[in-house]
Write a protein that binds this DNA or RNA. Structure first.
Length: 417
RNA sequence: GUGGUCAUAGCUCAAUAGGUAGAGCACCAGGUUGUGAUCCUGGCGGUUGGGGGUUCAAGUCCCCUUGGCCACCCCA
């Protein structure tokens, strides 16, 4: 065991996995930029209040934050998510609406780590501020859906629900409280604690004793105002028009408290994991105001990079790719020839690597093979004397000796560049 | 945070009832002095996560500790 290793819940993303991560965010950017979203890069660190303001009844904010006092005596925290930062940013800069942004990057939550659950975990996501239209809900959901398709995922299910207008939600929560309080001691101990803080969350419980009471609990749909019901219906109509399959899940609640009206979650196809929530989001009208900005409707989603990649592993899509190199230079006469050749070839846009330490030709050929390069360019005593190089196709075909002055033209022609 | 489980070479694993650590892969070097992927030979590599204890003897038993994984919790 090495003296130092990564802290719990932290890890290195090594090659070739790291290349897969980069492609992941590139594909995401491609999908959402095609819909008019632009990237926002918020800081990793914010005033603690930015996060406490958004949900002081949630574990994410009350128990799991990396918060501390900095050298300037400010109370700050590593962001546990990015929606709050986006809203803070909106309230601070007041951009014109609609403000359509996307982001990607790490968040921090002090939890007990597991597979697909890390203390530093990456998310990609979008947020739109300033638009109330249910067709925007449809667009946002469809972008998540489209992104999964772009990765090659086919077994993702979309769960959909509405929490109603804030007033509806309050009434519903009261009804739930009454309902669960009637259950009294028969409710699990955990749920009795949850009941005092946020009755909605009990609907998410997996504990056996709670199940009958969850089943008989009041339905959110009965509490929708006309407005909320109309909004929700419009969203469903829109999704159907786009042929996006969804499951209405009246018991779906989200972890953060700030959600209103439309909420949704993407679930992975693998059933045997408690970590199968790939991503989710919803409307959070009121968040910007809570952070000191003008009353502004908002909606967005965040997708977990790790979990989505695990889902890709399970479905056998979006594999890590071996790097593609054009040329590997083998220099058996000291290494100076290789220095010049790699430089010249890179200058015309080819990807080129070489061997070092003046190793044997056999050893350098092994490296050339391992590098996955299409061609080996070889210089030995004979070639150096003749001003020539050997060019050898690594994936089959005969090698040829050509004048060094013709190398670049020859390579570019062969590769159709 | 609670409970369970696991921890042996860079990686994946093996080691009969406690007797003093082995394989495959990877890596390196050779296989008649200029060329890779296959094949053959050899080599490098482990105070068995760390600490303490029981024993003549511990990778194997006990305790503590660190970390991974699983469930709860929470959520991405």
């Amino acid at each position: 065991m090495p003296e130092f290793q990564t802290s719990p819940g932290m890890r290195d993303i090594l090659p070739p996995e790291s290349g897969r991560w980069r492609r992941f965010t590139a594909v995401f950017a491609e999908v959402v930029e095609a819909a008019g979203y632009q990237q926002l890069i918020p800081p990793l660190l914010e005033d603690l209040g930015v996060f406490t303001r958004i949900g002081d009844a949630t574990d994410v904010v009350t128990k799991e934050m990396y918060d501390f006092v900095d050298k300037g005596k400010r109370r700050v925290a590593l962001r546990p998510e990015q929606t709050a930062s986006v809203c803070r940013s909106f309230a601070q800069h007041r951009p014109t609406v609609p403000w359509k942004v996307f982001y990607s990057g790490p968040n921090f939550r002090y939890e007990k780590p597991q597979r697909g659950r890390y203390r530093q975990f990456d998310q990609v996501g979008v947020e739109v501020l300033g638009v109330d239209d249910p067709m925007l809900d449809v667009e946002v959901i469809s972008l998540g859906w489209e992104f999964y398709r772009a990765l090659g995922l086919r077994q993702v299910t979309l769960q959909l629900n509405s929490l109603g207008e804030p007033g509806d939600r309050v009434q519903y929560v009261n009804a739930l409280r009454t309902h669960f309080e009637a259950a009294g001691e028969r409710l699990s101990e955990q749920s009795r604690i949850t009941l005092t803080k946020n009755p909605l969350r009990i609907l998410d419980s997996k504990r056996e004793p709670d199940q009958p009471f969850i089943k008989s609990a009041p339905q959110i749909a009965d509490f929708y105002s006309e407005e909320a019901a109309a909004h929700f219906d419009a969203v469903k109509v829109g999704l159907r028009a786009l042929d996006i399959q969804f499951v209405e899940e009246p018991k779906l609640v989200r972890g953060l408290d700030y959600y209103r009206r439309t909420i949704f979650e993407f679930l992975g196809g693998t059933l045997d994991s408690a970590q199968n929530a790939l991503g989710g989001g919803g409307r959070y009208d009121g968040l910007v105001q809570a952070l000191g900005g003008p009353a502004t409707p908002g909606i967005g989603f965040a997708l977990g990079v790790d979990r989505t990649l695990i889902a890709c592993d399970d479905e056998g899509c979006f594999d890590a790719e071996a790097p593609q190199l054009d040329v590997f230079v083998v220099d058996a006469v000291g290494g100076l020839e290789a220095a010049v050749l790699t430089s010249d070839l890179r200058a015309v846009g080819l990807s080129v690597d070489r061997g070092y330490d003046n190793r044997s030709m056999k050893a350098q050929m092994k490296l050339a093979n391992r590098s996955g390069a299409s061609f080996a360019v070889i210089v030995g005593e004979q070639e150096r004397a003749d001003g020539a190089v050997v060019i050898k196709p690594m994936h089959g075909g005969d090698q040829a000796t050509i004048p060094r002055s013709e190398l670049i033209a020859h390579l570019l022609e062969t590769m159709n560049l």
